[in-house]
């Protein structure tokens, strides 16, 4: 079937099993669409003809058709109109427009994907990424200990939010590396609070998030570069929090700290 041109999304793929596209089956009532219509129309017409033949005998002198014939014709039209209305509801042209929604499969390309990977080396508009520090965490090829933009309180809040979404499953909420997935058998990552990672430049965390490390996969496709920096900043916050003393807390906040620690051993 090529009624929609070569991009027909319902056509079967050549040479192989038909690609399952179950979400495209949106009209559950498609079966009576074509089959029923001629049958009903024929039936209605037969009724009309029957009435006409019978009543012509009774009043054949009346011009312009008998009343019975008119009724029969009217009934015929009503029947057809009702049927047309009924099955018009099953036309799905606008429901399934010849365009691809995200992740919609296609038969045009061999891998069945309508979304195409970019040609290697392509630079999208606004994606030149010349800023080495911002996009690699390095300066002249060496991991940097600088942030590419000033970190504000809002950045830290955003960093905490993103950390809690993407990092806590393994690294847990304090960064000690005992997240829920680790409890279920994932190799434990090192704690952020060991000396090696406390000394590590902040670019190291950015680099690990971008490229993965050990059994950790890259998060580059899931977290924007700016957010990776904010998470790195929040990791610094976690590191500080585990090595802080009471003197680090501003005097105005200390009563609150004592209140929070009330029930806990000091």
């Amino acid at each position: 079937m090529k009624s929609r041109g070569q991009f027909d999304i319902r056509a079967q793929r050549e040479g192989g099993a038909p690609a399952p596209v179950p979400h495209l089956r949106r009209c559950g009532l498609s079966w009576p669409r074509y089959a029923a219509l001629p049958g009903w129309a024929k039936l209605c017409r037969a009724y009309g003809a029957g009435v006409a033949v019978d009543s012509e005998v009774a009043s054949k002198k009346k011009a312009g058709g008998t009343p019975a014939l008119q009724i029969a014709r009217a009934a015929n039209v009503i029947c057809l109109a009702a049927l047309a209305l009924l099955f018009a509801g099953c036309r799905m042209d606008m429901h399934q427009q010849p365009k691809y929604l995200p992740y919609e499969p296609t038969t045009f390309f061999d891998d069945g994907r309508s979304e195409r990977p970019v040609v290697p080396g392509t630079v999208a508009r606004g994606q030149l990424r010349l800023d080495e520090l911002l996009y690699t965490g390095k300066e002249n090829g060496v991991l940097s200990n600088k942030f590419p933009f000033p970190i504000t309180r809002d950045d830290l809040e955003r960093g905490r939010q993103r950390y809690n979404i993407y990092c806590t499953p393994c690294h847990d909420y304090t960064g000690s590396g005992q997240g829920i997935v680790v409890q279920r058998g994932f190799p434990p990552p090192p704690s952020y609070h060991i000396d090696r990672l406390r000394q590590a430049p902040v670019g190291h965390f950015f680099d690990v998030m971008s490229n993965g490390y050990g059994s950790m996969y890259s998060y580059a496709s899931r977290i924007e570069p700016e957010d990776r920096w904010r998470i790195a900043a929040y990791i610094r916050v976690l590191q500080l929090s585990q090595h802080a003393t009471e003197q680090d807390v501003p005097p105005s906040e200390r009563p609150q700290l004592n209140q929070l620690n009330a029930g806990q051993p000091q």
């Binding site: 029957g50 009435v51 009934a75 029947c79 009702a82």
Partner: peptide, 19 residues
């Protein structure tokens, strides 16, 4: 005649019910 008329009007109701 009666049967056909009844069934024609009846058909409209049946269609409405079907709808």
């Amino acid at each position: 005649n009666t049967i056909s008329r009844v069934s024609i009007y009846g058909a409209a109701f049946i269609l409405a019910l079907l709808g």
